[in-house]
Design a protein around this nucleic acid. Structure first.
Lengths: 283, 283
DNA sequence: GAGTGGTCTAGACCACCGT
DNA sequence: CGGTGGTCTAGACCACTCA
C-alpha cells in the first residue's frame, strides 16, 4: 500500500481488511470466493491481461454481498494476481504467484509447497546468555538466557542453507525437547501453541564462516545470500530471531508489491540491523 | 497477506481493501485516521507493546463509522505498525517502518526518504531489439525494439549500484529524450503520464561484469547483490524491466509480512527468472 | 452518459480472549 | 461473561474511464 507517483498519482497508503487467524480456507465466504477466482485464473479461464467480471456480477454469481466480493478481490490483489483501477474492470496479471506467510516463515513449508523434499539436521543446540544483538532483537535483557539452534537445511538431500535460530528461553525450551529428527521446528512450535504472526526480514549477503563451510561443504569465505528474520506473536513479543545463509544459486527471494501493498524496502545505513559489511573473513 | 499457521492458526490469504490511486493523504477519511494514528504512534503516544483503543472508540473519536476505522487500521497493519487478533485490542509493534511503493520503485525516492543524496550518471542509452529475456519480461515479441539505459547510481557521491533498465519502445522514447542530468527517470516518466502500479522483485546475487567493474570501481567477478524488477501499469502491461546490482555492504532489503500480508517468497528452481547460478566469470 | 471501482455508513452476528 | 475484533449485508454516493 502506499505511495505512488507525483502529479497524477501520488502516494497514499494502501489498505487492507482485517483477517481471521486460523480458519479452513472455504469456511469464510470471502475466502471461498477468493479461492474459486484464484483457481479460475490459474486454470486459465481468465488469461493474463483479461478483464474480470464486475464486482456486482461476481456478487450475484457467488450469492454474496459486494463487500465480500471486494474482500476476496483484495486478497487476490495482494497476491499480485489482479490489479484494479477505478473506472475499469479488474485486470488479471501474469507474473509469479506470491506465497503464503507460512511458506515464508518456515523453510519446510516453503520447500513442500514447491514440491521439493526438505530435510536437514541439527548441528547443535546451545543454551547461552543472549549476546547484545540477540537481546536487542528478542527484546530481552542483555544476558538473558536464549537457545541457539544451528541446523543444516537440505533440498532433495543437497545442502542449501545454514540456519541459526535464536529463541527466548521459554520457546527455546520447547525446541530443545523436540525429537532430533523433527523436520519442521516451526510447525512443532505452532502445535504447541506458539503463535507466529508477523515477521521482519532483512536480505543481504555475507561470507561463510567455519560452521557454514563445514555444513555446506564450501570454502570458508564463500559468498552466501543471507536472510535475517525476527518473528513476533500477536502481542508483538519476539518469538524467534534467525539468520539463514543460502548457497548462491540455490535460491532467490521474490516480492510483489503495488500501490496497494508495500512491505518491501531498502536499507542503507544500519538502522536496526547492521548491513553485511564485515567483508570476507581473512580466510 | 495470507497464510498462517497450522493447527490453530494456519494459513489462508490475508486480505486487503481496495485503494484509490492518487488522492492527497487527508482527503479520504480512512487516510486521515490512518495518518493521525501513525503520527500518534511515532510520537510515542502509544509505545511499542501498548494497546490501541477499541475500534468503536476510535470511530467515535474521529466521527467515522467503524468500517472506516478498520480500513485505516488495516493500512497500519500492512505497514507493520500494529498487529491484531480477535478478542484483544490491537497491539503496537516496534520494528522497522515499511517504506512506500514509490520508495521501492525508485532509487531516487528511496534515497531521498532516507536523507541521503542520490546521484548518478547515465553511462549509455542503447536502442536495440529485445533479447529473449527482455521480450519475455516486457511481454513483447522477440526482436521488438527496446531501450536499454545503463546508469551508475551513487549515494553522497559514492558508487553504490549499477542499474540496467529496459523499456518498451514507447516508454523508452520518452526516457531517451530526458536531459542527461535527470536524477529520477521514474519521476520524469510519471510526470509524463506513465503509470507504475505493480512490481515483481527478485533478489539474489551475481558477479560483476566489465561494465559493473568499471562503473563501481571494483574487480570483475566481485559479488553483487542483485534486484531484478518488472513493473507494470494498472492494465498489467509491463512498463519497465530493470536489473540493479549493488555493491555488498551498501544496502539490504527489508520486508515486513504477517498473516495478513504476504508478498514475499523464496524461489528455488527457475520459474520465471533464472536464479543467479552463472557463477563468477572466469575473470 | 453508462459502467465500474473506491469510499462510507449502519447495523447485525459470531468467535475469541481474558477475568 | 463482557469486551473486542472478524465477517457479512444493504444501500448510497462519488470519481474515474471509455465509447
Amino acid at each position: 500500500m502506499s505511495g505512488q507517483k507525483a502529479s497524477r498519482h501520488s502516494s497514499g497508503p494502501g489498505d487492507m481488511v482485517q483477517e481471521e487467524h486460523g480458519t479452513p480456507d472455504r469456511d469464510l465466504r470471502y475466502r471461498r470466493v477468493a479461492a474459486e477466482l484464484r483457481e479460475a485464473i490459474i486454470a486459465g479461464e481468465y488469461a493474463a491481461g483479461a478483464k474480470l467480471p464486475p464486482e456486482g456480477t461476481l456478487a450475484e454469481r457467488y450469492s454474496v454481498s459486494r463487500g465480500t466480493v471486494r474482500h476476496a478481490l483484495a486478497v487476490l490483489r495482494t497476491d499480485g494476481l489482479v490489479t484494479s483501477r477505478r473506472g475499469t474492470r479488474r485486470t488479471v496479471l501474469g507474473g509469479p504467484r506470491a506465497q503464503s506467510f507460512s511458506e515464508l516463515l518456515s523453510f519446510t513449508n516453503w520447500a513442500r509447497s514447491t514440491g521439493e523434499t526438505p530435510g536437514g539436521r541439527v548441528d547443535r543446540v546451545v543454551r547461552r546468555p543472549a549476546e547484545p544483538l540477540d537481546a536487542e532483537q528478542l527484546g530481552l535483557e542483555a544476558g538473558a538466557e536464549v537457545y541457539l539452534v544451528l541446523r543444516l537445511r537440505t533440498l532433495s538431500g543437497e545442502p542449501v542453507m545454514v540456519e541459526r535460530s535464536i529463541y527466548p528461553a521459554r520457546v527455546g525450551a520447547l525446541v530443545a525437547e523436540l525429537p532430533p529428527d523433527t523436520v519442521s521446528h516451526t510447525e512443532a512450535l505452532v502445535m504447541q501453541g506458539v503463535l507466529f504472526t508477523d515477521a521482519d526480514h532483512t536480505i543481504d549477503l555475507t561470507w561463510a564462516d567455519a560452521d557454514d563451510a563445514r555444513l555446506l561443504d564450501c570454502p570458508v569465505g564463500q559468498v552466501l545470500l543471507r536472510e535475517r528474520r525476527r518473528t513476533t506473536n500477536p502481542a508483538g513479543v519476539p518469538v524467534e530471531w534467525s539468520e539463514d545463509r543460502y548457497l548462491p544459486g540455490t535460491i532467490a527471494f521474490t516480492v510483489h508489491n503495488s500501490v496497494a501493498t508495500s512491505t518491501l524496502g531498502r536499507r542503507h545505513s544500519p538502522r536496526t540491523l547492521p548491513v553485511g559489511t564485515d567483508g570476507p573473513p581473512a580466510a
